[in-house]
């Protein structure tokens, strides 16, 4: 039931989609390989544009750094400090090493999400390939962190549910597959959640823009449509931020769960992490 919807969302010819400049360029060269490439690789092209913008903005912000920051450096520092607080708030001081990785994920997703709200642009995150790529990177990093921090035996012990008594060992054949499936489900849930939300957001915008044009036609407006999509732009801005935050927070927690816990009991790491008294974002500021 979900697959046909995802297939439609993945870019079928008849799917509802706002125009973007890459598609316009592609339309100027119909039947050519370049036009076909541009049409099918549109999301990759936009994701590279996002990467380019982020790289330019951050290199401009961190070039000629001063103790009393300029406007751009100040904005970049606020973002970095906020992400630092977010990550170390969940993971504790050990999270400092993961701030660049998780911060990059947040910024990349947030800017990608917002891109769909700019006319003639497209959200790269409204394509499953983009979100799955991110989720797979997070999956690999989380497993690698588990392997390195826990050691191969510790990692297996973790996957087996950390059996410490006969009942625990009896449960290993049951818990091990559950853990493996759980780990494999994480990138699937991460990628589908982000993709579904951003794709749905873009579809809503496209639908209401189309409706506005239809209404304008009925009212004999020739050059512009009724902006019925306007409220959804603000909603989309909110969901863009929330989805970036959700993806980043879940990635943080997935990596955190792979770190050795001295006091946490297996299966209760998240509850422990969210329990009162645990460091919360902002405490390290």
């Amino acid at each position: 039931m979900i697959l046909p919807l995802l297939e439609a969302a993945a870019g079928e010819e008849n799917s509802l989609e706002l125009p973007n400049f890459v598609h316009w360029i592609a339309k100027t060269m119909p039947g050519t390989k370049t036009g076909e490439f541009l049409h099918s690789w549109v999301d990759v092209i936009f994701s590279w544009i996002v990467i380019l913008i982020l790289a330019l903005v951050f290199s401009a912000a961190s070039r000629n750094r001063k103790m009393i920051p300029g406007q751009l450096q100040n904005i970049a520092e606020i973002a970095v400090q906020w992400l630092y607080d977010l990550v170390t708030g969940v993971m504790g001081p050990r999270g400092k090493a993961f701030v660049p990785f998780l911060g990059s994920i947040f910024l990349y997703i947030f800017v990608s999400n917002i891109f769909g709200l700019i006319p003639l642009m497209k959200s790269p995150t409204s394509n499953l390939n983009t979100t799955l790529a991110l989720a797979l990177v997070v999956f690999v990093v989380a497993q690698a962190v588990g392997m390195i921090k826990l050691g191969p035996l510790g990692y297996l012990d973790h996957m087996a549910g950390q059996p410490r008594d006969p009942i625990g060992w009896i449960m290993v054949p049951l818990l091990m597959p559950i853990h493996v499936i759980g780990e494999l489900a994480k990138p699937v849930s991460l990628s589908c959640r982000l993709f579904g939300n951003i794709f749905g957001e873009d579809m809503v915008l496209a639908a209401f823009i189309g409706l506005g044009i239809t209404v304008a036609g009925a009212l004999h407006f020739k050059f512009f449509g009724v902006p019925l999509h306007l409220p959804f732009i603000f909603l989309a801005m909110l969901t863009s931020l929330i989805q970036a935050l959700v993806f980043t927070l879940l990635s943080t927690i997935y990596i955190f769960l792979m770190l050795p816990h001295e006091h946490a009991h297996h299966g209760h790491e998240v509850e422990d992490a969210l329990a009162p008294g645990y460091p919360v974002p902002g405490e390290h500021a």
Partner: peptide
């Protein structure tokens, strides 16, 4: 996309996060 993100991570980490942190 994976390669793109890894490059983005490398750039942001080297010119953004590490120096700013």
């Amino acid at each position: 996309q994976i390669i793109g993100f890894l490059i983005a991570f490398w750039i942001l980490s080297s010119v953004g996060f590490k120096p700013l942190l």
